[in-house]
């Protein structure tokens, strides 16, 4: 996808949908916008069918505003709440079998590399905790072990939210959910540590409480995945619908978990990724 594609043929300008015209005239393509610019440009996501107060929707909005080059980004999603939002996003997107996202992304990334050898085509995997840590864990881990140059983002709402709120491997121990009426019996899967040990060059866990921190993690993940190797970002996205709190409490819930260390924020960077980021960030274009 090149920036040239986002130009309109003058003769058709008057029949193009208003949203499209807006996207061409004031969208983020080729602009280098970030979360600090939110509110001053046409965002990639305009509307979505997710619940009021959905932490995942907020995270998706922030991720979309954090892409270094949205015009060269393809998102691979998976089944779950996020898959309901992706059709509303002005980016190219592949949705496949539940849990197979990192395998699909591996094929896509390799094909894009071959077709566009001189360009960075960012393949961004955005999936939920069930897709990433449960049903898709084999394909996620093997994409890391193979060193696939993908950025994998988990939107962690700690449950199967789209099917009504069952436990997932990422639900905290003791958490009462459907199919766990007396509380979950085993610990939250330590995926950031697994990612680090499986070959990820950059790993971070963040929450939407600090948008700039989230932006930094997403950008670093995408940039490191271009040159160094696989990367993983885990974003805590509280779910008011299934955890039965008010929509206005979403950020407070995330803040509380940050504060009491039950959702520890971390960042692992390999020396190679560190050197690469230092060279890039020294240039000062992003961050």
């Amino acid at each position: 996808m090149s920036k040239a594609m986002f130009k309109m043929t003058t003769a058709f300008a008057d029949v193009m949908p208003a949203e499209y015209v807006e996207l061409v005239q004031s969208g983020p393509f080729g602009q280098g916008y970030g979360v600090a610019d939110l509110g001053s440009f046409k965002e990639l996501i305009e509307e979505h069918p997710l619940c009021a107060g959905c932490g995942l929707a907020l995270a998706v909005r922030l991720i979309m505003a954090s892409l270094p080059t949205p015009e060269d980004t393809v998102v691979v999603g998976s089944t779950g709440c996020s898959s309901l939002a992706f059709p509303q996003i002005a980016l190219q997107n592949i949705h496949s079998l539940f849990g197979n996202q990192n395998a699909v992304a591996s094929g896509l990334k390799r094909a894009l590399k071959l077709r566009f050898p001189d360009k960075h085509k960012d393949v961004l995997v955005v999936a939920g905790d069930g897709a990433t840590a449960d049903i898709g864990l084999d394909m996620v881990m093997h994409s890391w072990s193979r060193g696939e140059k993908l950025a994998t983002i988990m939107l962690d709402n700690e449950a199967y939210a789209n099917t009504g709120g069952q436990e997932s491997g990422m639900s905290p121990e003791g958490c009462v959910l459907y199919m766990a009426p007396t509380g979950k019996k085993f610990k939250k899967i330590a995926l950031p540590e697994i990612a680090r040990e499986s070959g990820c060059a950059y790993v971070a866990s963040v929450t939407p409480v600090q948008p700039r921190k989230l932006e930094k993690a997403v950008r670093r993940a995408i940039l490191v995945a271009r040159e160094v190797g696989p990367t993983y970002v885990q974003i805590f996205v509280p779910c008011p619908t299934n955890f039965k709190f008010k929509p206005q409490e979403t950020l407070a819930k995330a803040k509380q978990r940050e504060k009491d260390q039950t959702y520890p924020l971390r960042e692992f960077i390999t020396p190679e990724a560190q050197a690469y980021l230092a060279a890039l960030e020294g240039g000062g274009k992003h961050d």
């Binding site: 069930g130 449960d134 049903i135 864990l137 199967y160 789209n162 099917t163 009504g164 069952q166 436990e167 491997g169 459907y178 199919m179 766990a180 009426p181 007396t182």
Partner: peptide, 27 residues
């Protein structure tokens, strides 16, 4: 979990322990 059958395993998760059976949500 998968819609529209979730109530079946959800019922089992409550009922199996009462009859000393095993309910397990797989990955």
């Amino acid at each position: 979990p998968i819609t529209p059958q979730n109530e079946l395993p959800e019922y089992m998760s409550r009922r199996m322990p009462q009859v000393e059976g095993t309910f397990l949500q797989a990955e």
